[in-house]
């Protein structure tokens, strides 16, 4: 591999890592409990000034699915989604897409997305905002898994009389 393609590959990896990290925090902000997020936001120090580029708006998106995760895609159903885009005074653009119609949630998630793009603030925000969301989502997942596991039924087939 030549030097230039190596450099390109390396820079692509950096972009990919950045994209992956951003996808993770945008996902967490979107799935966070709206009330908890609002509280965390109100307690946050050093909030930036921001301009709303796309006012929070609610629309429908078609959710597509595959039975058992394979086979043909089909339209599962529509869900309401609220999106918002802001620009902070540091010039970072924050986007948010959240399920439901909570416009405050969408706005806060968008501003936090913009803030998390500032490398100097990421660590503190991760601890203050993202970590509580992560643990609460984990707890919910575990609770669901426990409930499901408690009622688990193992099916097995006895040998039937026919060949």
């Amino acid at each position: 591999m030549s030097q230039t393609t190596q450099n390109e590959a390396a820079s692509l990896k950096v972009v990919d890592a950045h994209v992956a990290a951003r996808q993770t925090w945008m996902g967490l902000l979107a799935r966070a409990d709206a009330k908890a997020l609002e509280k965390a936001w109100s307690e946050l120090e050093d909030k930036p000034d921001y301009t709303v580029l796309r006012t929070p708006e609610t629309g429908m998106v078609m959710v597509r699915a595959r039975t058992g995760g394979e086979g043909q895609q089909f339209n599962f159903g529509e869900m309401s989604v609220t999106r918002c885009v802001v620009r902070t005074d540091t010039g970072h653009q924050g986007h948010a897409y959240i399920a439901g119609r909570n416009k405050t949630h969408a706005t806060i998630a968008a501003v936090l997305d913009a803030l998390l793009q500032v490398p100097e603030r990421r660590e503190a925000l991760d601890a203050e905002i993202l970590e509580p969301i992560r643990s609460s989502l984990n707890r919910q997942d575990n609770e669901t898994a426990d409930k499901v596991a408690a009622t688990r039924v193992d099916f097995f087939t006895l040998v039937r009389g026919d060949d």
Binding site: L53, T55, G91, Q93
Partner: peptide, 15 residues
């Protein structure tokens, strides 16, 4: 996309 002058401006206030 950090520079302010290539970013979009706000759209309609009440779309």
């Amino acid at each position: 996309m950090n520079s302010q002058d290539v970013q979009p401006l706000p759209g309609f206030a009440v779309p």
